[in-house]
Amino acid sequence: MKSFIQSTIVITTLFLASCSSNEKPAPKEEHHANENSVELTAEQYKTIDLQTGKIELKSLSGTIKVNGILDVPPQNLVSISAPFGGTVKNTELLQGMKVRKGQVVAIIQNPDFINVQQDYLDYKSQLDFLKLEYERQQELSTENINAKKTVQKAKSEYESMRARVNGLKARLQLMNISLTSIENGKIQSSSSILSPISGYVTQVNTNIGAFVTPSDVLFKIADTEHLHAELTVFEKDIPKLIVGQKVRFTLANEDKERIATVYLIGREIGNDRTVNVHCHLDKEDNQLLPGMYLKGLVESGSNEVTAVPDKAIVEFEGEKYIFSEVKADHKNEHAFEMISVKTGVSELGYTEIILSSGKSWETLKIVINGAYDLLSKLKNGEEAGGHSH
């Protein structure tokens, strides 16, 4: 009986030792010896339609962030004044109103306007008389009846009066008073001010009854059909700019993207170390107004950079990664390593990547389709392994 009990203990001990030895390898049998590696069976590889490729050299455009405003060229923004002082008799302009070239924007009244018209009629009458006298003296001179001195005097008086009449004509034209009306006896005490361009009223600085002088700016009118973008670019970014580059910009409180083209690059650096860059809008928009604030990106030319398709890059916990294929430890399996990268310029479905030191991009075989499936399997596998311990 004692011998039987001893035999039973020995067998039980051996059985437990055997069980214990069978359980020991379990912790070592991990699918992910490296926390950044993952393996797929041939079936899994096919199921997720995993595709591999190479890191490529691509010409991607760099961009420069800029701020600016919409503005109009000097020839498309006019300040309107009264050439001669007077009282504003009438104006119907309001800010934002559209006006056409030649339209009356205000009527100025001044009693002195009457004097100018009367002088014109008086001098013109004298001019006609002096012209006839000069011609008569010339005829007499050809017959040697009068002295040359008399002819010269007649000519001098005629030329002097003609200059006065021409000066008054120019003055009346500035007043926009018709010479024909004056010569027909219609004298007026008011002068019309006309708009020199078509556009929109941006400022109204007067009102009916106000007395104005030639130095007063009554209105400002802008032709918004030729707005341009005036960008402020930092000194360090100027070498990257060339005429003809495209600018993508949006206005404040607007998501619509608009396009402009660099037309002129300033030659003076401001106190804030910036340079003004003049850009023409690719598509005119009459709804835009001078002074609108904008934010934009200037395409600063193309550079050869290492790049991968956008879908080859995955993001996890704020970091960017790609997967490269490595040699598998088991037959019929594919192994992949997750590599941390920094990203740069993105364009046309490709994104610039910068590998960590020690990695040679030319030799890597990367996953270009199915990267997020690998990330999911990798992280789920880690969690499952964590629960089993």
Rank of each mutant, 00 (worst) to 15 (best):
S3R: 07
I5T: 08
S7Q: 14
T8V: 11
I9W: 14
I11D: 02
S20N: 14
N22I: 10
N22H: 08
E23N: 13
P25W: 13
P27M: 04
H31F: 02
H32A: 05
A33E: 09
S37H: 09
S37C: 05
S37M: 07
E39P: 15
T41G: 05
Q44P: 15
Q44S: 06
Q44Y: 14
Y45V: 00
K58T: 11
G62R: 08
T63Y: 07
T63D: 08
N67P: 01
P73Y: 00
P74S: 09
V78R: 03
V78Q: 09
I80G: 07
A82F: 14
F84D: 00
G85S: 13
G85M: 09
T87G: 02
V88L: 06
K98T: 15
G102S: 04
N110K: 03
N110R: 06
P111C: 09
Q117F: 15
Q118S: 08
D119S: 12
D119C: 01
Y120T: 03
L121T: 07
Y123V: 07
L127F: 13
Y134V: 01
Y134P: 00
R136K: 06
Q137T: 02
S141Y: 07
T142V: 13
T142A: 14
N146R: 14
K153A: 12
S156G: 00
E159L: 10
E159K: 11
A163E: 10
G167E: 05
Q173C: 01
Q173L: 07
N176Y: 15
S181L: 05
I182Q: 11
I182M: 06
E183M: 14
N184E: 12
K186I: 06
I187K: 12
I187Q: 09
S189T: 06
S190I: 02
S195D: 04
P196W: 05
V201E: 11
N207W: 00
K220H: 04
K220A: 08
E225G: 14
E225H: 10
H226P: 06
H226S: 14
A229D: 12
V233F: 03
D237L: 08
I242P: 10
V247E: 12
A252C: 00
A252K: 14
K256H: 12
E257M: 03
I259L: 07
I259T: 04
L264P: 01
L264N: 07
I265W: 01
G266P: 03
G266Y: 01
N271T: 11
N271W: 00
T274V: 05
N276G: 06
N276K: 11
V277I: 11
H278L: 12
C279G: 12
L281D: 02
E284G: 10
N286Y: 04
N286W: 02
L289M: 15
Y293E: 09
V298A: 05
V298W: 02
V298N: 09
E299M: 10
S302Y: 14
V305I: 15
T306V: 05
P309D: 02
D310M: 04
K311N: 15
A312I: 08
E315N: 08
E319R: 10
E319M: 10
K327I: 03
D329S: 11
H334V: 00
F336C: 03
V345R: 06
E347S: 13
L348W: 01
E352D: 07
S360V: 11
T363P: 02
T363E: 12
L364W: 09
K365L: 13
V367H: 06
L374R: 15
L374V: 02
L375V: 03
K377G: 03
K377F: 04
E382W: 01
G385M: 06
H387D: 02
S388P: 00
H389K: 11
